[in-house]
Amino acid sequence: MRALFSLFAVAVIIVVVVLAVTTDAGRLFFGTILPYAAIAIFLVGMVYRVIDWARSPVPFKITTTSGQQRSLPWIRNSNLESPRNKWGVLGRMLLEVLFFRSLFRNTKADLKDGPRLVYGDAKWLWLAGLIFHWSFLIIFIRHFKFFVEPVPGWVMMIQNLDGFFQVGLPIFYITDGLILAALTFLFLRRVLIPQMRYISLAGDYFPLFVIGGLVISGMIMRYTPLRVDITDAKLMGVGLVTLDPVLPEGLGAIFFVHLTMLTVLLLYFPFSKLTHMAGVFMSPTRNQANDNRVRRHINPWNPEVKVHTYEEWEDEFREVMKAADMPLEKDTESK
């Protein structure tokens, strides 16, 4: 049901776009106004999120660890599993972001006859997740060619590597096949495994379908006779980023579907689970060193305790004490 709802939402968006771009007003809306609005909302929304997280108090140092903490000099510390300083934190964060190290440790529990509980490794999610994210990144970088002139050499290099096998004309990009396969896996995992289906929400399916729509419409534009003249697409892309928007005549509905899938993704991004893109850097369990025993972590929630030190007390009663000949720590007059 939740999957169907998301699928339906994406389908409605596509139909609306296809109908709307037959009119000039529709092309202006979906080709210029909405993209600008989406970029603004995405950037402001994400920055707001990050600032909001950065302002939230972190009462305890709650680093997650899975290795030996730094203690005595002759016990070897695992700086990546239980970081002792900021370099350890940085290294662990980089490995997490680039290679999803914690997901690699994913396990599954199975109830076998007996009943016996058996734990095994489960690497498919890690593999599909990694392939999906890397393909997305490479496609994203390759797309810079639609927005910049001249196209920098490193973008060309990535594109040529992506088309390394030179299959077909236009050349098939490896990442296109990989991202489709990974998306299919990520989707099937949610619908075929009963437990996964039970916990999956519309908010889990919707991004999958939007990104699926984005990828498929892009591939239709490249590999099928529905191709648009991508020279026009570039004129439009460059126009968008130089704040001089143009809408060339030749761009077909499929291009607007592609663009709108991205627009929807951008609009949805800051309000959804996709914020994990920024959130991973802000997780207190991952961005703090495990150095509780070395450095005191001050809890910003600690109530302010009213104290009255002996010094202040003596100041207050000095005269009286002096008169009674009591010993004073600090005798101001006898100096």
Binding site: M46, V50, E149
Partner: peptide
């Protein structure tokens, strides 16, 4: 908290996403 690092991160994020904008400006060939 950690204002310096957070601001650095935000600036990097914006710089990467807005790459086409400043790259075109730098090259001046719009």
């Amino acid at each position: 908290y950690d204002a310096g690092k957070v601001i650095l991160g935000v600036v990097l994020f914006l710089a990467i996403l807005l790459f086409p904008v400043w790259y075109n400006l730098a090259k001046g060939q719009t």
